[in-house]
């Protein structure tokens, strides 16, 4: 587990998908921890990333910015960052700015992991330039 008492991440691999389990509060103070965790995964050549929010109680724009920073490169390499199991108060922050248009946000982790085996599952979330 990485992080401090306000925010932590557990990382495990499930069916060749790198799963990150977020816990606590994701803000400008703690966002670098998430950034580092995703950088490590991508650095190992992996591009299927599932982020489970079930234990996350708070997200600010600093947290949203981390996902924005990686999503284009990950999708260009044929992978995706899928988000799952958000509490309503966390989802409402994504929703406030229209992020469900760009990100694949699933209610359950299982569904999100299954979608990684579907070819081009991220296509409908790609924004035409």
């Amino acid at each position: 587990m990485i992080g401090d008492n306000k925010f932590s991440i557990q990382h495990k691999e499930v069916e060749q998908v790198d799963c990150l389990y977020l816990r606590g509060y994701l803000d400008a103070h703690t966002a670098p921890v998430l950034e580092s965790a995703i950088t490590d995964i991508i650095g190992k050549g992996q591009n299927k990333i599932l982020v489970n929010f079930s234990e996350l109680d708070y997200i600010s724009s600093a947290g949203l910015g981390v996902f924005m920073a990686f999503i284009e490169d990950v999708r260009d390499s044929g992978g995706d960052i899928k988000l799952a199991d958000m509490k309503p108060k966390v989802f409402s922050v994504f929703d406030l700015l229209g992020f469900p248009v760009l990100f694949d946000i699933e209610k359950e982790e299982k569904t999100a992991i299954e979608k990684f085996s579907v070819k081009d599952s991220a296509t409908r979330f790609k924004i035409k330039k």
Binding site: S61, L64, M68, L96, L97, G98, V101, L102, I127, K128
Partner: peptide, 22 residues
């Protein structure tokens, strides 16, 4: 403009957008 923002895969500047929305 969030459509333009997503098209450009931009990264910052969302804080003020949130303040305005809330």
């Amino acid at each position: 403009n969030m459509n333009e923002y997503f098209k450009g895969y931009k990264k910052g500047g969302l804080g003020i957008q949130i303040i305005r929305a809330v």
